[in-house]
Nucleic acid binder design. Structure first.
Lengths: 334, 334
DNA sequence: TTGATTTAGTAAAACGTTTTAGCATTTTCA
DNA sequence: TGAAAATGCTAAAACGTTTTACTAAATCAA
C-alpha cells in the first residue's frame, strides 16, 4: 500500500508529470494547459486522494512551509499560550509550526537550530538565550527570517518583538511606593537575558526615583534550573531574614513558588503586604486575595510576530529590521 | 553561501560519496572501509561543520526520526506538561517531536494527520477525538505505530495509554459521600470522548453504590468551545438554583472557572462545601483552602508512551497492541 | 504566403541522500 | 598452487518533486 505519487496521477490521466505538477501548483493557466486537461487531472487527484510528498517538495524547492518556534519551556503557560496563538495564526496562512524547548541550555538551543536548519524551516521565531548569538547570526547570513521575542539580543541586527519590561517593572514598583511600601523586594532569576535584566533595572530605577536606598539583600536571584523545593527554601529565607512589605516576582513560576511560601508562613496579603506577579497565570486571579500582575499582551505579541514573518517571507529582498516594543499592562487586583 | 553537501566532503576527501555516506551512518566497518579513510573523512566533516540534509535523507529512507504529537490544546497545562515530558524523553533517544493542537475539531485533526503523513513522521502520539477513527485506521494499515493517550477509541485496535478515569472519579465521589455530602454535582464537558464519559460513569456508579438518587440537574455539561464567560454563567446558575454541597469538576479548566464562580458568590470551601478538581493545576494547591484533585501520573504516562513507541520502531514486525491503564491518584488537600 | 508568436504540452535535470550491485586486489586455506 | 573469501572502495539508481528548456502545432500579422 505505497502512497500515490505524481507519476501515478500522470499515468492515470495520460499526461506528463510536468503537466500534473503545473496543475497542482496553480501554474496551469500561466503554462497554457487547456481547461479540459486541468479538469481531468483535478478530478483524478480528488478521487484518488493524492497528496504531494512534502519531503520531495522541500528537497526540490528548499523550503518547507514550516516555521520553527524555539521557546524556553513549552510547559510554562506564558510560552504555551503564545505558542498556541502563533500556531493558530500561522495555520490560517498555510504555515505549520514546529516547536521545541531549550530549557535554557545553550547546547540544546544550538541543536534545535541545527535540527530546524536541516529540516529547512522557512523562518525562525526564537525566544533566545545568551550564547547563541553566533548561531543566529549564521541564520541571518543565510537570509532566513528570524524574529526574536520576549528577550532581545541587542548585538544582533534582526527583528524583535517584546514587551517593555523596564517600564512595566518601574510602574509596578511605583505602585508599591504609592501604597507607602518601603521594604520592597524583587525575586528574579539568575539567567542573563535582557528581559530579566530590564525588570531588575526598572526596579532599581523606581527606588532611586523615590529616594529609597537599594538594599542588595532585597534582590533575590534564583538559579534557573533548580528544583522548586530549593527555590521555596530561598524565598522563605528572604522573608524570614528581612523586613519585607512588598514583593515583585519577575516570572510567573517564581510568583507561584513565592505564594506557596507566603501560604506556609501564614503571611496574608493585605494592606501590610503587597505582591505583584509577572506574566499572568490562572492562579493569580483565583488567589485569595487576587494577585496583581504585569500582563503582557499575548495576542498582540503573537499577531505582530506572525505579521513580521509573513512580510519577510512574501518579499524577495530583505526588509529593514524592526524592533517592536509593546507596552505591558499592570493589572491591579484586590 | 550554500550549505555543504556530502559531495563537497567526498571531493575534499578524495573518496566517493558512497564512502562518506557509509562513514556518516556508522556502516564503515561493516563495509570494510579502512581506518585511515574513516579518520580522514571524519576529520573533514568535523572541521567543515557539515550536517546531512535531513530532507534528502527522509526522501530516500522514507522515515524522519520525527514523532508527531497531536493534542487537544497545547495551552492546556495538562497537555503542555505531558508534551514537555514526551519531548524530553524522545529527544534523549534521538527523536524529535512535532506537536500541534486539534482544538477538538475533526477537520483540523484530519489536516494534521495529513500534514504529518506527508512529512513522513515515523510514529504518531494522538489524544484523539471522535470522528477520526478512519483516518487513524489508515495509519494503522500503513503499519505506522500509533499510540492513543488520554482518550481511547475502543473500536480501534491499537495502543492506548491512559489513566483509570472511572475508578478515579468513583473514588472522588465516595470521598464526598464519606464526608456526609448528599448533593453532589458533576461539572463536565459535552465532548463525546471515552475519558470524559468514564468520569461521568464513575460519578453515577458511586452515587448508586451508596443509594443516592441521581439528579439530572446536578450533572452540568458545558459545551466545549464556548467562551469562559458563558461557562461561568452556567456554573453560577447551577449553584444558585440547586442546593449543592460538593462538586467534582471533570477537567482543570472547568475547575478554574468553577472556582472563579465560587469566589464571586462568596461561597467558601469548608466542611459544608467540598470541591475536587481533575488534572492538577498550580492554582489548586495555592488556593485558599487548597483544592483536592485527581492527579494523573504525567511522568509515568509519558514514559509509557515513549517506551511503546520506541519498542514499535525498533521491531520489524508489528508488536501486539497494548492497553495500559494507569491508576490516577486522589490527592486530598485542605 | 511566410515568418513570428502563441498555445499546449513534455523530457530531463536537479535537489542530497542511501543503498545495491559490482570491481579489483589481496588474503586465506585445502 | 589455485579457487574461494575477504578487503577496500565506487558507479549509478532511486526516493518524488519542481523547473528549465524544448518541440510541434496552431494562430497571427504583414
Amino acid at each position: 500500500m505505497k502512497a500515490l505519487s505524481i507519476k501515478d496521477i500522470a499515468l492515470k490521466a495520460k499526461v506528463s508529470i510536468t503537466t500534473v505538477s503545473f496543475i497542482i501548483n496553480g501554474k496551469a493557466k500561466e503554462k497554457s494547459i487547456s481547461d479540459a486537461v486541468i479538469k481531468k487531472v483535478q478530478k483524478i487527484i480528488a478521487e484518488s486522494g493524492y497528496k504531494p510528498n512534502q519531503i520531495a517538495r522541500s528537497l526540490r524547492t528548499g523550503n518547507s512551509n514550516i516555521i520553527g518556534l524555539i521557546v524556553e519551556d513549552i510547559s510554562n503557560s506564558f510560552f504555551s499560550r503564545i505558542a498556541r496563538l502563533i500556531e493558530d495564526k500561522a495555520y490560517k496562512k498555510g504555515y505549520k509550526i514546529i516547536y521545541s524547548s531549550t530549557e535554557n541550555s545553550v547546547e540544546k538551543a544550538q541543536e534545535l537550530i541545527t535540527m530546524f536548519k536541516s529540516r529547512k524551516v522557512d523562518a525562525y521565531i526564537i525566544s533566545p538565550i545568551k550564547g547563541i548569538e553566533e548561531d543566529i547570526q549564521i541564520l541571518l547570513n543565510e537570509n532566513k527570517p528570524v524574529i526574536l521575542f520576549d528577550r532581545n539580543l541587542p548585538e544582533l541586527n534582526t527583528n524583535y518583538v517584546g514587551a517593555n519590561h523596564f517600564v512595566a517593572s518601574h510602574q509596578a514598583i511605583e505602585s508599591f511606593i504609592k501604597q507607602g511600601k518601603k521594604n520592597i523586594a524583587l525575586v528574579t532569576t539568575d539567567i542573563n537575558v535582557q528581559q530579566i535584566i530590564e525588570r531588575a533595572e526598572g526596579y532599581k530605577k523606581a527606588l532611586a526615583d523615590h529616594a529609597i536606598p537599594f538594599d542588595e539583600e532585597l534582590l533575590l536571584k534564583i538559579p534557573f534550573n533548580q528544583a522548586e523545593a530549593d527555590t521555596i527554601k530561598q524565598i522563605k529565607q528572604l522573608f524570614k531574614n528581612k523586613k519585607v512589605d512588598a514583593v515583585l516576582f519577575a516570572t510567573n513560576y517564581l510568583a507561584i513558588s513565592g505564594l506557596k511560601v507566603l501560604k506556609e508562613l501564614h503571611q496574608t496579603i493585605d494592606e501590610n503586604f503587597a505582591v505583584i506577579g509577572y506574566d499572568d497565570h490562572e492562579a493569580f486571579e483565583l488567589h485569595t486575595p487576587s494577585i496583581s500582575t504585569i500582563q503582557q499582551p499575548l495576542e498582540e505579541i503573537a499577531e505582530t510576530i506572525i505579521k513580521l514573518i509573513l512580510n519577510q517571507l512574501a518579499s524577495k529582498n530583505k526588509l529593514p529590521d524592526q524592533q517592536i516594543i509593546i507596552p505591558a499592562k499592570l493589572i491591579l487586583r484586590k
